[in-house]
Structure formats: structure tokens, C-alpha cells
Write a protein that binds this DNA or RNA. Structure first.
Lengths: 133, 133, 133, 133
DNA sequence: GTGGTCTAGACCACC
DNA sequence: GTGGTCTAGACCACC
């Protein structure tokens, strides 16, 4: 499977499934039109109840990450853009602010943070490249 | 007060208090040795149950953000370094990865993200400068 | 074809076929005694499983919208009146009530709703006129 | 209670709860800031499982009809407006179109439909007036 | 007391 | 085979 789930974490299991699949799509491990495992199949593989996986799939469908075709199966959706530019920037800014607070408590300098950020972006880009060829 | 709390958000109220105070400290609005309001005082000001504020203070003390001196009051702690370098990098990397996933779904290019990141870091630095003079 | 079908919608595909054909008949695009495509033909045209189309035709026959004559084909039925006046009013009232609830949440005033209703009724009438000449 | 639920209907029970509460709010039986029964309380009253009611409440929160404050209770939300004018008109038009199709099959004339519509709107207005005084 | 999550297991509509 | 719903019952975090 493309991700793991740990029931001991405070994050609900169904949310971990949502995050895991979103990450796999973002990385290019799952591409638009790819078929996802059936609800009960994924539940079996990950040792979860089918209701938990169903809830994750429903949430992913609501976020337009996947498309559920009843009686047929579940597929990765074509990318779609909902929010406008300014809304997107507000959202990203919020996440970046949290990053800065975290960096403060880990006593990283602004330069350390910027360097780490650039390194990881490059690695991320490379990984996506590998998955797309 | 240095932050706001919204009970309707899915984030627990006590966690919002924790995050708000950590952010105020990171921004320099609250400095080491500054005194925080008493539990019941802050609860009154923010219209919260005092148990909620008490729980937040306990969590902040556990994270060594504040120091509670019984009978004397609650103070912002001097900065301390707990994790070692590699642990710190692992933690930050996890947060940055989440940032990349979020950026993917908002269809931001790597360049847009990097630019936004640099802009916000500069703004953050300026704001800290203002609070420290 | 006189309508479209989207398997991703929560409405079952066979129901979309039923609704589409009923709408085409109501608009006068299909008139009594017009011949409908054979099940497998319509299935091919709309890229559907023939079982799905067969189920839709069965439902339409049950509602007396179409008539299936074995070995001959499928035809739009002559209009017939099943329910009595009071039952009809109860049914329409239920639908109108849902309309009012929806209007409330879209914050439309009664006047806006009435105006929109009258406009659409006129447009509907004109469209039917065009199809009947 | 302000509505009924029938498990034999094809509409899922949790959806009937959603519709029932939305209707009660639209009619003014429930007003902003009113407290709803606790999940388990409503479940008991309506002879449903608490999970079913919880699912309904979550859906209502997503649609911004109610606000859930964890650990405290559930309240009717202040009215909010999300869609813009043209989107709202598109949505209402879709519902009105369905109304016209239904009217055709019940062989109501346009005049009958308009009269019925106006009558029900007046009744609806009166009922809301009663609940608001 | 409040809502949220999860498993187990049954039943159902749809394709 | 596919996803969706529902009950029963347990456990949990939060206020």
C-alpha cells in the first residue's frame, strides 16, 4: 500500500487514510483515472473495518480527490481548482505561519529553515519526476 | 489578548489556547519572564471554562513554553533546547511535507510556493523585530 | 440524444435515464407514439450497460410514460391520468414545500421566488410551443 | 419532535433527519441559537441509533445549518450566504424545472400550477409568521 | 454530559 | 462485485 496507519495516534484512523491517499496523489504514486482498491479490499489490507475506509472515501470524494462510481468502483479524480488565487494564498499562509512558530521552538534560524525548505522541495520534485516517467 | 479562540472550530479549545500563546511567544509579543494572567483571569477574559485554561497551561508547561510557580504566578520560560538536531529536522520535514501536499491541491507551482514562503518569512522577521525593540 | 447522464452523480444512472426521458416528453421533444431506441442501441449511444437502460425502461413502463410492445419496439405512451385530483395536489404540494425550504436557505424572498417561477414557466411554455409546431 | 422519519422510504434515514431539521429551521420552528437535542437524546426519541443521528448532525454542520460545539452541545447556526446570486438562481431553476416535469405528468395546466404555488407560498408565509411572533 | 470514532455484522441498491 | 446504510455496543476526548 502507499501509506501506513497507526491507531494509537490521536489523528482518527479514517483521517490518516484520507491524508495518506492525498499524499500518494500529490506525489504522483496515484494518477488521475487510476483505480483505488475497493472499500472492503483496502479495509482487509490495512486491517480496518470497511466502515472506516468508506468514511475516508466519502471524505475524499467531498474534497474532489477521488470519484466514486457506485456499483463500479473508485477512481482518482482529474485535478480541479475550486478556490480563487487570494483564498489559496490565505490558506497557504496559515500553514506557513504554523511552520514559523514550530521553527521558533526548535530554535532553527530563518536561514536553516529556508535551506531545509529548499532541500525538501527539490527532493519532492525529484520524487514526482520519478513517478511521472 | 494576543489571540482568539473559536469553540466552533474542530480544534479543541484548550489546543487553540496553547497554539495562541506559543504563537505570541514566537512573535515576541510575549517575552521570557513575562507574566501570564492567572488561569481564572484568562478564563474570564476569554469567556472560557477555567478547566479549559488550566489544561492549556499544563500542556504549555509540559512543552516548557511556560513555567508555573505555585503561589507566585505563571511566566514565559527561557528558551530551551530539547530535541537534538536530527530529531528537529525530522519534525520540521514532516511539517514541510504536509505543506507540499497542500500546495499540490491548491495547484501552486514550486516557484509560487517558494516566493510566498520567502515573503512570509521576511514579514515574520520584521514583526519580530518590531516586538523586540 | 435528448439528455445526458453522469455516473459520478449520486443519483443512480438508471434514474437519470428515467428523468431524462420524462423531461424530453414533458418538453415535447418526444411525442406520444414516437419510437424510442432499442435498449441495446440506447446503451451503446450513451455508453451504458444495457441492464441499466433495461431497468430504466421497465420503470418508465411502470409509470406509464412509455409502452413496450414485445417484438415491435418501445413507444412514448399516450398521456393517461392515474391519480385523482386530491392525490395530485398532495404530490405537487410536497414538491413545492421542498422548493420553499431550498429558497429559504438561498435567502430568496418570496417575491424573488415568485418572479423566477413565473419567468421559468413562460420559458417552459414557449419551448413546448416550439416543439409542438 | 418537529418531524418524522420512515425507515421504509428509499431516502436514507439520516437524510430524512437532515431534511426534517432543515425544514423546521426554514419554517421558524427552530431559530438561530436554539439548542438541538443531544445526539443520543434525539436518537432515543426517534428510535434510531446514535450513529445515524451523529451522521445527520455532521452533514448539517457541513451545510452550515447547525453548529456543533464539542463537549457542549449543538445549536442552530446564524443564517449565512455562500453562493452568489447567479449560482443561487441556477440552483432554484433546476428545482423549478423538475416541478414543471412533475406537473406535466400530473396533467396540471400552467394556471393550476401557478395558483397552487401561490396558495402554498401564502400558507408558508403565514406559518412562518406564527412561529416568529 | 457532549459529540466522535471504531469494530462487527447485517442488509440493500446498483452495475 | 461495488459502495451505502444501519444497528449494537464499546471506548475516547473534551468541557
Amino acid at each position: 500500500m502507499w501509506f501506513r496507519v497507526d491507531p494509537r495516534l490521536p489523528t482518527p484512523v479514517y483521517q490518516q487514510v484520507v491524508d495518506g491517499i492525498k499524499e500518494a496523489v500529490a506525489k504522483g504514486l496515484l494518477k488521475p483515472r487510476d483505480r483505488l482498491p475497493a472499500v472492503r479490499e483496502l479495509a482487509m489490507l490495512m486491517m480496518l473495518n470497511h466502515n472506516t475506509v468508506a468514511k475516508a472515501y466519502q471524505e475524499l470524494e467531498r474534497e474532489r480527490v477521488i470519484e466514486v462510481i457506485r456499483g463500479r468502483g473508485t477512481y482518482v479524480a482529474a485535478p480541479s481548482l475550486l478556490a480563487n488565487r487570494s483564498e489559496r494564498i490565505v490558506k497557504m499562509s496559515e500553514t506557513i505561519k504554523q511552520l514559523c512558530v514550530e521553527a521558533y521552538y526548535l530554535q532553527m534560524t530563518e536561514d536553516d529553515l529556508l535551506t531545509l525548505f529548499q532541500d525538501l522541495m527539490n527532493e519532492w520534485k525529484r520524487e514526482k519526476g520519478r513517478n511521472n516517467t
